[in-house]
Computed example of a mutant assay.
Amino acid sequence: MIFRQLQDPESRTYTYILGDVEAKEAVLIDSVSEQTERDFKLLQELGLRLKLILETHVHADHITGAWKLRQQTGANIALSKLSCIDMADQLLDDGETIYIGAIPVKTIATPGHTKSCMSFLFDNKVLTGDTLLIRAAGRCDFQEGSAEQLYDSITNKLFSLPDSTLVYPAHDYRGFTCSTIGEEKRFNQRIGGGKSKEKFIETMNNLNLAYPKKMDVAVPANLRCGSTDTL
């Protein structure tokens, strides 16, 4: 198995490559439009054919590179069926298993940051998108977000995984690259330490964050899998 974590320096988005060396197949998760050439070159260097482009959710801070990569490689685009994106090739249900070569990747619906958030579990690693961040959790104030749903997604689904499970989020703004479920249960400032749902909802509803700078451009494009042809 090949596993790589890459970052876009502007949006601080983490992009992930998971590949099966023997099958020479790969999946790329949470691509960024400006980084598609970097990602494609790395796949070539690693001898991997891009089979699938996954999105953890419809991002608001960058335009996905999914559309560019599909045109370049022929790979399918997949994300949660709750995104209702008809330009995707696959719309995923909770609890599905996707195979990259012989590597099983399980889908876990984790709504709350947005209604269509999905996490991906494989090989004692979970890619949590913006649902569970390192020592934080994704904001809930747009794209049909819900602090109540987010609390349930994290505590009932992600925190039910073994404590040793490695957590790889879609973003980090403080220099962290990964964590574990056990660490986040103990130290996460928004939901760790047994924080009640009521306290979590109060915290999340009072973050008073500025909207992402690219939101008005990124969301419409990402609802079209990153295509800007008609925007």
Rank of each mutant, 00 (worst) to 15 (best):
S160Q: 12
T114C: 00
I85F: 06
S153L: 06
S83D: 00
C117N: 15
H171M: 07
D86M: 01
E45I: 06
F187T: 14
V217C: 08
A218M: 05
G175P: 07
E198G: 14
G95W: 02
L50P: 02
R70M: 05
V32D: 04
T128M: 09
H171S: 13
Y211Q: 15
I29M: 03
G65E: 00
L42T: 11
S153P: 06
K81W: 02
Y211W: 11
Q143I: 06
E55Q: 15
N76H: 14
Y99F: 07
T36N: 00
T36A: 03
T230R: 10
I154N: 02
Q44P: 11
L133T: 09
S31L: 00
G74T: 12
K51N: 04
D39M: 13
R186N: 13
I29L: 09
F122G: 00
S116T: 08
L161C: 04
R224I: 02
S164H: 15
F176I: 11
P212V: 09
N156K: 15
V167W: 04
I103S: 03
R174G: 11
I2M: 09
D130T: 00
T110F: 00
D216N: 15
K157E: 09
T97Q: 10
G74N: 04
D86S: 13
G74S: 07
L43M: 11
R224Y: 13
K213S: 14
T73C: 00
E96H: 09
M215N: 06
E148R: 12
C225A: 14
E144P: 08
A26N: 10
A60D: 12
D20R: 02
M215C: 03
Y151W: 08
A136N: 14
L121R: 11
V126E: 00
E148F: 03
S146L: 07
P212H: 03
F40G: 08
Q90G: 03
C84E: 15
T128S: 12
Y151I: 06
I77P: 00
L209E: 13
G226V: 10
D20V: 05
V219D: 08
K51T: 12
K41G: 02
F3E: 12
C178L: 13
